[in-house]
């Protein structure tokens, strides 16, 4: 194409926020006077055959958008979809004004050189407790996480990459409770299997343990809120989670 496509010209106007192996994340505007949107651009992967790359990119953009809509319809807090250009690999979603949960919980690492972050964790310069702006306690935050994941699993959506950096707390707005928002559905898929839900939780447990020191009690309260929201399926899921803990994320292929 000799003429630049609209999405290409849009990309050039954007501010890069973060880059991963699969996609770049930008902040930008679709309409000149509107508020910002977040744009996730799945750039071309030259190590793949061009035709395969196009179809993979297309189906992943579509898959992510569908997972978001499924979550929205099921009452899970996720960002709304704003634009889709699957052939260009571009997905526009609602801009969430808030902070990643990862940045709000105590971490053992030095803040400045955090490599694996999805969204910028601006360091609090005031030195106050990071959660104070959200008007909730750490316990409430864990409850919100458990409830949101349970709602997602009840809708048979598996996130695929549950970490504290893939969750955000929205800054509280007038007379609305603080919201926990699940983000990055790039690895999500649909499944009714207890195994998949248990592995999803296990991945989060590992993420808590590796990013936040002494987080066992925190994760325990995530699980108890999850259990309460999930209801009758919880006993079976708890047993499966114990199995997964023993063997790890991958199922043994021996025998």
């Amino acid at each position: 194409m000799s003429v630049k496509s609209p999405s290409q010209s849009l990309l050039e106007s954007l501010t890069l926020i973060s880059q991963g192996a699969e996609a770049k994340v930008y902040k930008g505007r679709l309409e000149a006077n509107d508020g910002p949107v977040l744009l996730k651009y799945r750039f071309k992967k030259h190590y793949r055959h061009a035709a395969l790359d196009t179809s993979l990119t297309k189906s992943r953009v579509a898959g992510e958008a569908r997972a978001l809509l499924k979550c929205l319809r099921s009452g899970v807090n996720v960002p709304g979809v704003r634009m889709v250009d699957a052939s260009e690999g571009l997905l526009g979603i609602e801009w969430i004004d808030g902070k990643s949960v990862k940045s709000l919980l105590p971490s053992g690492a030095v803040e400045e050189y955090d490599e694996d972050q999805e969204l910028p964790d601006d360091v609090d310069d005031e030195g106050e407790h990071p959660l104070s702006r959200f008007e909730i306690s750490s316990d409430t935050l864990m409850d919100l996480i458990g409830v949101e994941i349970a709602k997602m699993h009840l809708a048979d959506v598996i996130h695929g990459d549950l970490t504290t950096s893939n969750m955000m707390l929205r800054y509280p707005v007038a007379n609305a409770p603080t919201e926990l928002v699940l983000i990055d559905f790039g690895l999500s898929y649909h499944s009714t299997l207890i195994e998949d839900k248990a592995v999803d939780l296990y991945v989060l447990e590992r993420a808590f343990a590796s990013t936040h020191p002494d987080s066992e009690p925190m994760f325990a309260s995530v699980l108890s809120a999850y259990a309460a929201q999930l209801g009758k399926d919880w006993p079976a899921l708890r047993r499966r989670l114990d199995d997964v803990r023993l063997r790890g994320r991958k199922r043994s292929m021996v025998g």
């Binding site: 958008a65 809509l69 929205l72 709304g80 704003r82 634009m83």
Partner: peptide
Amino acid sequence: AIVDKIVISSVAMKSVV
């Protein structure tokens, strides 16, 4: 507010439904 959010998302992603 919820209906608004859902229908906006539905319109935005119609090309991949």
